[in-house]
Design a binder for these strands. Structure first.
Length: 994
DNA sequence: CCTGCCCCATA
DNA sequence: GTATGGGGCAGGA
């Protein structure tokens, strides 16, 4: 189609900058200090800010990198207050106050400034600047050119895409698609849908009452767009929200029209005409001189070769301002021709006018292009730097402020964040640009005098932290780290609370849970095709391993700078995938906010009674010794009871007992179930072995090991929680694992009694009752189960009654036990084989139970079948809150593996939804306690239980609050169709509280 | 000294 | 039948 304007179209090499002049004026006026022309007091603050911005954009474009300068540029203004939007909705922008008096003369001056810099000044009656920007941006994008919108207006975010970026020149912040996800919770193409619902009080866009950004984003993520949502409004569970969506449907539609930018404005000035013209030095200098902007005048003169002395200050009419002398104003700077001819272009450039159509913007397209970029970019370490002086560090920090984000990594003396001493910090600001700041490296071994003197030349730790702290805590700088919880804890111990942040480990986990590990080395390999320097190669391993402070600075620097660089590159790949996969809400509501919560729990630690554990170890040792001689007596020889191999030889070889199960490797199993079977046949040795094993386990894993984890200073035990270790969304705990402290046996509970409260405090344990069965009842929509939970019945007895037709009253405990096993089996993706093993019955009998169960609860079978179908088709399943668990191998031909993965996929939404619920409770808990002025501290999480330390006199008030937060945790995102029940109790130790 | 295996503690 | 972490043993480096 011929270009009607005859102006050359843009090409892929072009870079168009569209400056949103109207919003800039207001923001500059309010943000910058008031500045007046020295000679007569003319207010020029906004003009000054505008000129500086324009100059910078002309010189550098978006970034200072060469080649980034604009080839096309325009400043766009609103023509008048009334536009077509006022016809749709007369109240639109009706709340706008009149501009302040000293701003009025600057409106005209800014247009003068634009012309003085030979930049096109665009405005059109009936349209807002935003519509013109949208139209130009889309046209340029279609031609394949790069577009940068210079504005701080969030309404323009709907335009962002792989080729369209945005810069807030007031804040120096560059926005990409990932920032749209951050702000609106959706991809750019869905921004208008969200705005239509949420409205905007500033522009007086009504939206739907009771729906804000968060809810709007969540609804749009679920339903896709406004119309679909409105057509399905009846399904919305929350009654108030449903009613509003129905009642205000038309208002939402109007809102959408208001926020939708017009992308087809008939342009007075064609796109091609916006080509950047050679700067007319004398003209610009004349204007700047008139404004008395001395610094900028000098700079522009230097750059253009204009002679400041020879150029006279321009004179022009200033509307809205009476000069003190009251004289008329003369125009002596020729006004720039708005329809000036486009700059000459070489024929070769204009010949490939039809640039490849990049197609409609999709989040996946950005994610894909970032992944491609990451794969192909070489990891070039020549841009790495070792920072040894404070001034240079300040420059890095200033750069981080300028960009608004920075990758950070700490190097320390220990993997244990509670013990780690800071050795150095690394930063990265763009791929290949990274630095390491050594702070506490010491001379290596090799001298007998103790060595360890600080290596000279390093910045003093305190000085460096003084410079880093404001940046690490600045709301305007996003800190990017891999497993930030570790760095957060280390820095917290140096008085720094890192915020805000992104965590590449959690980004990967959110998007790819189940597809593999989320550690940095693995992610680097997966996304960058690059194996980072292994820690082992830097610090050694095993006995010869040294702490990081003993690593020579040069080697440390290469390792540490690379870690920051890799982290930044991973962020660039992974962050856009959040939007592409519609997982931003999961990341922002279930993952990221939990990091500081868990960090504080780890920091507090739990108190254990060392004496009690020591006594227990002695007790267990005695019991073991007694059993050991009995066992050797019965066996007729001495052997290592702890060796399954030797034990098997004795039992199934020497003594000739009938072997039961075999292990994977073909050896006879000596597991409890086998030994119990033998014991049931009247053999004495196996039951002694089982008793010995129990004591051995309690001693080695708990009473012996736990004291070793007591922190030398805090005297408490600080576990470490992993947020990204499970496929389902559960946490895991290690070093020590405090999620498997014994509870089932009397002997085991003695360990639990050693977990005690501080003086004047109690331990409070609050646990969800049957949360997974309740989640299942909700998800699979099982009427009998829901009713039973509603009525507060014994769920296992109810199941037994339904299945076997026996009354709940005076039920045989064995019958209830069978039903209980089946209920658990269901959650685990039941198989006749497993149920048979659990209940010690035949597979046939177990199969009959399952059949009966499904007859009574057909909805459960339907749910299981639907889940299997879904996972086979999609390779993942979702929790109620949208978390994904991937099972990429589920279509394998290996029938055992396939069944296993199917069961895991059935279990994941149930286990995972329960995990999501307790996560939500934990995230809210601290605020709720603080609001009620309660000083309870959350210490531990054990999947469906939270443990707090509470001052004695606050126990009574804390219990109902904790219960409330936990029971309402799904809301408002989800209203479960079954009630949640939390049991809470306080006591002096964990055993009695549980 | 590292790794795989077995066994077992929890939800 | 689901999800973890960890100790001890045994075998190969």
């Amino acid at each position: 189609m011929p270009n009607e304007s005859n102006a050359p179209t843009l090409t892929t090499d072009d870079h168009l900058i569209l400056v949103d002049g109207s919003t800039f004026i207001f923001r500059a006026y309010h943000a910058l200090p008031p500045l007046t022309r020295k000679s007569d007091g003319l207010p020029v603050g906004a003009v000054s800010g505008f000129c500086n911005m324009l100059w910078k954009l002309l010189q550098e474009g978006l970034t200072p990198e060469p080649g980034d300068e604009p080839t096309h540029m325009a400043v766009i203004f609103d023509h008048s207050a009334k536009t077509f939007r006022n016809e749709i909705y007369p109240e639109y922008k009706a709340h706008r106050p009149e501009p302040p008096e000293d701003l009025i003369p600057q409106f005209g001056l800014i247009r003068e400034a634009t012309r003085a810099f030979s930049v096109h000044c665009i405005e059109q009656e009936g349209f807002e600047a935003d519509d013109l920007i949208a139209t130009y941006a889309r046209q340029a994008e279609k031609a394949g050119a790069r577009v940068t919108i210079a504005s701080g207006d969030k309404d323009l975010m709907q335009l962002l895409g792989p080729k369209v970026g945005m810069i807030d020149t007031m804040k120096g912040k560059i926005f990409g698609v990932e920032d749209v996800a951050e702000k609106f919770g959706v991809t750019p193409d869905k921004v208008i849908e969200v705005q239509a619902l949420a409205g905007d009080s500033v522009d007086n866009v009504p939206g739907v009452p009771g729906i804000g950004l968060k809810t709007a984003a969540q609804l749009i993520q679920e339903y896709g767009d406004l119309e679909t949502l409105l057509s399905k409004a009846e399904e919305i569970k929350q009654p108030k929200r449903r009613q509003n969506l129905i009642e205000f449907a038309d208002q939402a539609r109007i809102s959408k029209q208001l926020v939708t930018l017009k992308e087809d404005v008939p342009l007075d000035v064609p796109l091609g005409a916006l080509a950047v013209e050679t700067l007319d030095g004398p003209k610009a200098v004349a204007f700047l001189k008139a404004m008395e902007f001395n610094t900028l005048t000098r700079r522009v003169a230097e750059k253009t070769g204009a002679d400041t002395a020879e150029v006279e200050a321009a004179e022009f009419e200033i509307k809205g301002w009476d000069t003190p002398d009251g004289k008329g104003r003369v125009m002596n700077s020729a006004p720039a021709d708005q329809n000036s001819k486009p700059a000459e272009r070489s024929s070769s450039e204009s010949s490939h006018g039809s640039a490849p159509d990049t197609g409609p913007w999709t989040p996946d397209a950005l994610a894909d292009s970032r992944a491609e970029e990451a794969r192909t970019q070489k990891i070039d370490t020549s841009g790495y730097e070792t920072v040894m002086d404070l001034e240079r560090l300040k420059e890095w920090v200033a750069d981080a402020f300028e960009r608004g984000y920075v990758a950070v990594d700490t190097e320390t003396t220990s993997l244990d964040a509670m013990q780690a001493e800071l050795v150095g910090v690394s930063l990265a600001t763009e791929p290949g640009k990274a630095c390491y700041i050594p702070l506490a490296h010491v001379e290596g071994e090799g001298d007998l005098l103790g060595g360890g003197g600080l290596i000279p030349g390093q910045i003093r730790l305190e000085d460096a932290l003084d410079v880093l702290k404001p940046m690490l805590e600045a709301p305007s700088v996003l800190k990017i780290a891999q497993n930030l919880k570790y760095d957060w804890l280390v820095l917290k111990r140096y008085g720094i609370e890192v915020a805000p942040f992104d965590d590449t480990m959690l980004l990967s986990y959110t998007v790819d849970a189940g597809k593999g590990g989320n550690g940095m080395d693995e992610l680097s390999q997966r996304w960058l095709g690059h194996a980072p320097i292994p820690f082992k190669e830097v610090a050694g391993s095993g006995k010869s391993m040294v702490t990081f402070d003993k690593v020579p600075i040069e080697r440390a620097s290469a390792y540490a700078a690379e870690d920051a660089d890799v982290t930044l590159r991973l962020w660039r790949v992974l962050k856009p995938r959040l939007a592409g996969d519609h997982m931003a809400t999961v990341y922002e509501t279930l993952e990221r906010p939990l990091v500081p919560v868990l960090a504080r729990m780890e920091e507090r630690g739990a108190s254990v009674d060392r004496q009690m554990l020591s006594r227990l170890s002695g007790e267990f040792a005695q019991g073991m010794a007694r059993l050991e001689s009995e066992i050797h007596e019965l066996a007729g020889e001495s052997f290592n009871i702890g060796s399954p191999k030797q034990l098997g030889d004795i039992l199934f070889g020497k003594m000739g007992l009938p072997g039961g199960k075999k292990t994977k490797t073909g050896a006879w199993s000596t597991s409890v179930s086998v030994l119990d079977d033998l014991a049931a046949e009247g053999h004495e040795l196996p039951s002694r072995i089982v008793e010995w094993r129990q004591l051995s386990k309690l001693k080695s894993t708990y009473s012996d090991a736990l004291p070793g984890y007591i922190h030398p200073e805090t005297k408490r035990v600080h576990t470490s929680y992993s947020l990204a270790a499970t496929t389902t969304g559960r946490l895991s705990s290690s070093e020590p694992n405090l999620q498997n402290i014994p509870v089932r046996t009397e002997e085991g509970r003695k360990i639990r009694k050693a977990f005690v409260a501080d003086k004047g405090h109690k331990l409070l344990s609050a646990d969800y009752s049957q949360i997974e069965l309740r989640v299942l009842a909700h998800m699979a929509d099982i009427p009998q189960l829901k009713q039973a939970f509603e009525d507060g019945l014994d769920i296992h007895a109810m199941t037994a009654s339904e299945m076997f037709g026996v009354p709940v009253k005076d039920m045989d405990p064995m019958v209830r036990r069978r039903a209980k096993a089946i209920n658990f089996g269901i959650i685990y993706g039941i198989s006749a084989f497993g149920l048979a093993a659990q209940l010690g019955i035949s597979r046939g009998e177990a199969g009959d139970y399952i059949k009966t169960y499904f007859e009574r609860f057909p909805g459960i079978r339907d749910y299981m079948e639907a889940t299997k179908k879904f996972v086979h088709e999609n390779g993942y399943v979702r929790t109620i809150f949208g978390r994904k668990a991937h099972y990429p191998e589920v279509n394998t031909k290996n029938p055992n593996m396939r069944s296993f993965l199917e069961r895991a996929a059935i279990n994941a939404p149930i286990q995972g939804s329960a995990a999501d619920i307790i996560r939500r409770a934990m995230i809210r808990m601290e605020d709720r306690l603080a609001t009620s002025k309660l000083s309870a501290r959350m210490l531990l999480q054990v999947h469906d239980e939270l443990i707090f330390e509470v001052p004695d006199d606050e126990v009574e008030k804390t219990i109902p609050l904790v219960k409330d937060v936990m029971e309402k945790a799904p809301e408002p995102a989800v209203q479960l169709s079954v009630p949640l029940q939390v049991d809470a109790r306080a006591a002096d130790n964990w055993d009695e509280a549980h």
